[in-house]
Design a binder for these strands. Sequence first.
DNA 1: CTGCTTGCAAATAGTTTGCACGTTC
DNA 2: GAACGTGCAAACTATTTGCAAGCAG
Lengths: 142, 142
Amino acid sequence: MADRLAGLIEDLRSRGARVTSARRHILSELVGAEGHLTADELAARVQRAQPDLHLSTVYRCLDALERLGLVDHVHLGHGRAVYHLTDDPHQHLVCEECGVVIEVPDSTFAALSHDLASSYGFSIRPNHFAVLGRCAACGPTS
Amino acid sequence: MADRLAGLIEDLRSRGARVTSARRHILSELVGAEGHLTADELAARVQRAQPDLHLSTVYRCLDALERLGLVDHVHLGHGRAVYHLTDDPHQHLVCEECGVVIEVPDSTFAALSHDLASSYGFSIRPNHFAVLGRCAACGPTS
DNA sequence: CTGCTTGCAAATAGTTTGCACGTTC
DNA sequence: GAACGTGCAAACTATTTGCAAGCAG
């Protein structure tokens, strides 16, 4: 876990981006949470250690990290986006009833991805879409 | 086409909802456009015939129509939602580069839907998610 | 006529931006 | 010390809501 963070920091540095306190904390929280954090949540968590970190800084950091390819975001339907690290590729199932987010391996979408490529020439962007529906606990759509 | 509109109006009436000028126009535009309209676009089109129709009314109408099951909306990633009629079920592929929306039949997702149901007990909500990626014209993710 | 609908203005949520100051390399 | 990053306030976009007036049933 500490190794993973160290690797990410190293990535940052090696691509010529500056390693700041805000970025270090944000990456650290993302590693700790294993993804799925909104900008809000991320700000709240980092602020426990660094109270004057502003929400807009979180957005700018995430934007920079995304541009560098370390982070990606997914829109979960009703506005708010969640951010996660790009290593450990996965897709998201979101329950519209209870809001739970289930991670599923990329391989689940391999067949679909292939079909869409051959039928429509369309390339799915990995890690960047959420599938909406209802989870097992909430039962099928009534 | 006129028949389709008449059927929708009838649906409205039979479920006890009031048939207003705003609702009639909105349904008419949705039929004419074959879906994929944002609230903005919808307002602009209806305003050609009924200039004082307010955007908030469009949202309220769409909300009512959605509650009645005639209309559904999809979030295309960066905020704005598009609305479409619920008959003629289909899914949406959205190109992140050029924004084009490609409709594909529900059947394309049948296998995925089945897999997710059996592996995770998760029921995909039909017609309510968009798949992001890149269209044939824009080429695969660089 | 009674309540569902609408127009309008103002509020909200999520995110972005301008600018002056602080920090990293 | 030059360029990049951050804090803060204000702008912006998409959508929702309160309220008084309007129209459908």
